[in-house]
Design a binder for these strands. Sequence first.
DNA 1: CTACTTGCAAAATTTTTGCAACTGA
DNA 2: TCAGTTGCAAAAATTTTGCAAGTAG
Lengths: 130, 130
Amino acid sequence: MDSKIKYRKSRQRDTIQEMLMNRKDHPTADTLFFELKKEFPDLSLGNVYRNLNILVEQGVIQRLDLGSTFNRFDGNAAPHSHFICTICNSVSDVDLKFDLDVSIVSNESLAGHISGYKLDFFGVCEKCRR
Amino acid sequence: MDSKIKYRKSRQRDTIQEMLMNRKDHPTADTLFFELKKEFPDLSLGNVYRNLNILVEQGVIQRLDLGSTFNRFDGNAAPHSHFICTICNSVSDVDLKFDLDVSIVSNESLAGHISGYKLDFFGVCEKCRR
DNA sequence: CTACTTGCAAAATTTTTGCAACTGA
DNA sequence: TCAGTTGCAAAAATTTTGCAAGTAG
């Protein structure tokens, strides 16, 4: 976590990254832990967190904070929006037709200094609608 | 928290609500706790949480989840955007000139079923810019 | 070799809960 | 009186950390 650390390659961390990139749900640390446990029987949850934090720091994945009491992780580090189902809490990616125009903000003192935004959508997913 | 409970009036809860409505920073439970402690010397943090949850349930305040490890609370229950300073982590309200047009979402299967969105902005606040 | 990585267990942080005493309507 | 409220302490849930042994380069 110390930014001057030169990270080594680790099969565990590589697998976490790969797993995250290959699944499009946005799993929690715990979900990943149980999935990884199959391949690394004596894996510990603490190291899943440690590796996730390193991957976030390296900018290859991102941590999602979507209003739950726990974090989810996304193999796609590029900023993008999500759709959260208010019934089953599943999270899916959302593509925007256009980039948001930040000029919709009317606070003059802030408007010029906005460096980013986070836009997420809520509703009932297709599965829960049936 | 049981939705069939008929809440009584409580000076503690009223004060929390009032305090929240009168300040425009968006305090954490802990911050409120220390502030309230002046007026209620043997207040417990647990009850601050209990009362905040009741107020959220009643829809008079809202819980903010802005990416930190803790929640903040907002005396304004109406959905609105926030600006989070990436230096000092302060949170301020943001007014939008227009309501966001949800048709910017291109996922056809979701587009018609979006019931809400959450839009927050990031940058460096005026104080930290100096 | 030297630093990074891992497993394990303990700890830290934030929030919730059980219980008995108290209080408002 | 009765159901909601409070203080206190313990517990729950999620995430972080210390340490000693292991390992990549």
